[in-house]
Design a binder for these strands. Sequence first.
DNA 1: TTAACTGATACTAAATTAGTATCAGAACAA
DNA 2: TTGTTCTGATACTAATTTAGTATCAGTTAA
Lengths: 150, 150
Amino acid sequence: MKVLNKHTDYAVRALIALGMKPGSRMSAKALSDDQGIPYQFLRRILQELIRNDLVTSKEGAGGGVALAKDPDGIRVRDVIEIFQGRVQVSECMFRKQLCSNRTNCVLRHEIMRIEQMVNDEFSKVTIGKLIADLKRVEETGRVLHGENNQ
Amino acid sequence: MKVLNKHTDYAVRALIALGMKPGSRMSAKALSDDQGIPYQFLRRILQELIRNDLVTSKEGAGGGVALAKDPDGIRVRDVIEIFQGRVQVSECMFRKQLCSNRTNCVLRHEIMRIEQMVNDEFSKVTIGKLIADLKRVEETGRVLHGENNQ
DNA sequence: TTAACTGATACTAAATTAGTATCAGAACAA
DNA sequence: TTGTTCTGATACTAATTTAGTATCAGTTAA
Ligand code: FES
Ligand code: FES
């Protein structure tokens, strides 16, 4: 059961990469090379991030993309919702077509509690937090993530 | 972002239905009609539940399936793991091929914490608990789930 | 005026999920 | 002992989602 798909995965990676170089724009090409993300795929992901105001862009030569806001203001939850929709355990546990009485369904209660928890947790994790963690690890010399070794 | 697929959904429904009539066997056909689950699909789901010792079966005329253990001993988590594998947020956030240094990866830490939480929660929800909830609601006359009304 | 970019969108391929079909064999009952 | 009702096993198809590619128009800077 995989929770994050490639869109979200790549988007988070791209956002971190952009957040690591504050102020500077990067082209999609550079990001693609940097992070090993298929170029055309990344392009579409970035365009979606732009539409959702997480990223700003500048067209033309010397253009590129940059974070639209403070890394601490970008939650992983936001990214998930853009590419995968709201976290929901099941559209409706016992019926394809949503029930009219959803609020009364006890089965749903359990499930919605879990949904809420997951959403809360993903709200706490921001790009800023991830970057801080990454930097801390880099400084203390501990190994980091897959791109850097092996 | 849908977390539970049809296999899990139908399996839970079937397990609840079986748990509601303790002792008695039901044929896959009856279950299928009862719950509105496609017959052949349900057959395969039941066979999987049987292989995993959540359900027992008896062949031949008058045969059928029944819960193999106490409903309280069947966790929704077990069902999820049978049909969707272990809950994991991402195989590995930053690399397709699992990194050798996963234990040191700070990004992974956040994610594994959330995974753990979800698994814990789905461990707490058992078929017995769901049945108890259902019965309580039936008694108090409150509306229940989608099969019973519009 | 050309090279380096993004915007928009159509398209294809791969993987997963959902659902169907078939045949063999067990148990029961007449 | 034969027909009927059931499960076991497994192959198959269809639908949907996810992943990835391609193309063309327009913008900007040198
Ligand atoms: S089954 Fe639809 S709301 Fe509970
Ligand atoms: S990216 Fe692979 S373990 Fe962190």
